[in-house]
Amino acid sequence: MAHILFFLLAIICIGSVLGMIISKDQAYNALFLIVAFACMGGLFALLDAPFIAAVQIIIYAGAIMILFIFVVMMINLRTGIGPEKKKWTLYFAFLVAGVLIIELVLTLKGALKPISSASMDKIGSPTDLGRLLFTKYLYPFEITSILIIAALVGAIVLVKKRDKE
């Protein structure tokens, strides 16, 4: 059962990412990405991280992609911009990608320990995550909140229309 779910989610994910790359229209790109994020959320849930899955869907697929769509609409390009015309950049990109895949696969050799039975019981529930956040990772937590404020203020200030212009 889990296997089927996994393969389904994986194929949809990869498919929408491919679609995003191939498509020329930005709105379609954004929609494809939303699908991809939703699948990712599902994959997270499969990996015993329900809270993170929920956060992924709410924030990524929800908030961030809405931002993207807003911007796409504001820019309002009638015609899409196609991918690179020059062939050699394509080939070079594929070459780099090939090298990258090989390297990363090689990295994985022996990187995974066999799953111990004890870990099977650990599910990323909000309680446990919250406990970690507020004890071990307190500083990053607080600093991240400051970061969010900074981003908020920054985004607003940046895009404000200057009165004197």
Binding site: L47, D48, A49, F51, I52, V55, Q56, I59, Y60, A63, I64, L67, F68, V71, L112, K113, I115, S116, A118, S119, K122, G124, D128, L129, L132, L133, K136, Y137, P140, T144, L147, I148, A150, A151, L152, G154, A155, L158, V159
Partner: peptide, 28 residues
């Protein structure tokens, strides 16, 4: 999941947060 500790998930939490902030500013 493989190591059995929740630290990885906390990190993901932070990554998502930071990505959100970054997306906001980047789009601006």
């Amino acid at each position: 999941k493989s190591a059995g500790s929740l630290d990885g998930q906390v990190i993901v939490f932070f990554i998502i947060t930071v990505a959100a902030a970054e997306a906001a500013v980047g789009l601006a």
